[in-house]
Amino acid sequence: MLKDITLGQFFPGDTVVHRLDPRSKLIVMIMYITGLFMAKGFPAYGFMFAVLVTCLAISKIKPAAVLRGLRPILIIICLTVLLNIFFIRGETVLFQYYSIVITLEGVYTAIFMAMRLIMLIVCTFLLTYTTSPITLTDGLERMLSPLKKIKLPVHEFSMMMSIALRMIPTLIEETDKIMSAQKSRGADFETGGLIKRAKAILPLIIPLFISAFRRADELATAMESRCYHGGDGRTKLNVLRFSGIDFAAFLFGACVIAAVIFLGRFAV
């Protein structure tokens, strides 16, 4: 069912990772991704993998939740692997059949690319699973606030983002409801070929748009009637502050990058 899409879902908890300032989580995530792109060879990749698994364990995210989140991008991963295996031509030929050539270099690249993709996605899960969308956009707004000096509408941007994030589950729920209504009157989303299924989806889209517009309208009215007028002079209920664990996290991120550079020397 649609509900199983967990991309961007927040699992409340009370671990160190949950308590980190959203800004430090974002920064450490960027550091980790940088490390990921600098990694060379199995030792470095293995290390990055171990770091990720440790972080997941610390934040008490269940492996099942991670796997469920990866399912939608499975096709992309498979495609990447296939493309790399068949199109990278290296020195050591493993297999040849007319013009199809598989080389050792190709296989290696495919493995690394797949690992990099998976770790990239999973490390963003670490952020979105442990940070509520509200705190996340709050963090983003604070991080981007210097840009206000050059007249960029940072507050409006982050408000738009938090509304968008907030609406994803609502829209999924709405889709589910309309699908249920159509199914219980004999609509058939499950059998038939691709074209038939695509056609069955069509009557879903119109009511979904209508309800999205209706909700946007209602939300705007609700915001206006509570005197929302943009970011000027607005204060926060919970002001973000860095604490000891945030500095520890930065240190951790720096160590990871250093270790990756060091381990890259052992690449074969």
Binding site: I178, Q182, K183, S184, G186, A187, P203, I206, P207
Partner: peptide, 29 residues
């Protein structure tokens, strides 16, 4: 699928689940 025609279900707050362009088409679904 056959059962869906034999067991008709009217949802809670069904008014949010109308989806066709006219009432006639919606009932005819």
């Amino acid at each position: 699928r056959d059962i869906r025609f034999k067991v008709g279900l009217v949802f809670q707050y069904p008014e949010y689940q109308l989806f066709e362009s006219t009432v006639f088409d919606d009932i005819a679904f």
